[in-house]
Design a protein around this nucleic acid. Sequence first.
RNA 1: GGGACUGUGGGGUAGCUUGGUCCAUCCUUCGGGGUUCGGGACUCCGAGACGCCAGUUCAAAUCUGGCCAGUCCCA
Length: 520
Amino acid sequence: MQTTRRMARGLCAFDRLIPRLELDPGPRAPAREAITRRPPRGAAPMPELPDKTTQFIDWYLAVVEAAELTDKRYPVKGLNVWTPYGMAARRNFDRVLVREIEATGSRAVEFPTLIPETEFAKEKEHIKGFDAQVYWVTKGGATDLDTKLVLRPTSETAMYPIFALWVRSHRDLPLNVYQIVNVFRYETKTTRPFLRDREIHFFEEHTCQANEAHATERVLSNRAAFAKMARAFALPYLAIRRPEWDKFPGAYYSIGLDVPMGEARTLQIGTVHHYRENFSRPYGIQFEDADGSQRFVHQTTFGISARLLGAVVAFHGDPRGAVFPTELAPYEVVVIPIPSTESGDAPDRLAGEVADRLTRHGRRVRLDRGEERPGAKYYHWELAGAPLRLEVGRREAEQRAVHAVDRLGRKETLPLDGLEHRVDERLAEFDRALAERARVTFADAFSVAVRLEDLAGSTKVRVVSWCGREECGHRIEQAIDGSLLGTPEDPLPFATPEIGPCIGCGTIEGARWAIAARPL
RNA sequence: GGGACUGUGGGGUAGCUUGGUCCAUCCUUCGGGGUUCGGGACUCCGAGACGCCAGUUCAAAUCUGGCCAGUCCCA
């Protein structure tokens, strides 16, 4: 197990002579190259990361692998190994989701992984949408099962028969519950760690409301909760109502939460759905209202997968590797002693003292006492996305101070006096700067297109005028070789001209801004 | 579903066209020793691979067939 040792030591290095991330990349990616290339002459003989703008997917795979967020060698396609470092990030991720959803009054539940075919098939649109990508369990030992079971691709059909038992009276409403479980989808496209897995770490909230208006309020409440989650991850996004042909199977309407990823690509990182009575009718979820009448509940769902973790890496990452916002970082602070012959063990002792103090203060701290040289550790922890690095050498030991460098490269010497507070400030400042950098990247990711011809080969996510008709929608999708994500729920957070006629048919009537992109 | 391509140590690769020079190249990684340590150290020693099965042949990483796995393109 050579790799295990490597992962424990955290030794991995990439060349530093890579250009800064450019937002507008010019030509599209050329043919794929090997994951690593030889560095330029004069540089150390170390592998370097592929260029993020021209070889995005190679860059992404190299980062999640080298940062030890995943181990891609598991022998079944699309199943992800959660390494210690990746798992730590995931637990922080879950903590944020739980905190924000529970603040809205939702409670945790957990339903079984296996769903009987009979329940799975009750809602026709739903089964049509998922049929092609479910895993079937057909045997128990050597015995063929009478009723086949599906491995849940999502949990509507597991929960709703039970919801029908739980909801009897208007006093049982609203019912707001969530679970964080694994779901399974047999993806036929190329799988990517976090971005497209066949076993998916999944957050899903399911609610029952007394009427359509309450369900609509729940959708808004979910969106507000998501805004807080996204703030914790420093991720800007758009909430976009999906067109009819692209909504969740069985939904009344679907709102996708999309992040622009550069090169006209977007990544859907969450969804909120309004089901109206579409599921409550087939599953018989009804209640006796205050006036004595029997009514079907209106339902909503809210889904987020660990794909969001991949989105954080993909969005914030730069030529040096991953960048984690403090809240997500497995280690918020990495302390690196710099030994030397003349200083004896003073740096090491001080590094230990610093790590102890910050740990007692409640920070997630890693004291890196490995055998590597300090420079190698700097490269590794930058690649791994640690927000703040504290260097402790002879100078610091003499001055009773630490040298702090954040992941955006800003340096400052911090005296030991009041260190805890100063580190808190440095991390808060790092998060602010990261969010600001994200905001700039976000604003630069969009551009308005007024002619269908402008969509071909676009390097930006396109904002277009759309009359709302499906025919024009497909015309737009064909022109951009991607998807019409739908119409934004909120005013666009950047300047747009006066809206013109529909880009597909030229009609001005009913024309609204819509977003066209090439989803990852 | 249709087509094209690719499988060499833990990772990335050279070799394959034209079989023998290969008990397989280079980088990285892993284990051990020594000198080092303020941005990827050096050095010495050691470990580790031809996807699977069959065939052709004196001889197969290399040629042929089947299988498996993966990637890309099209429906």
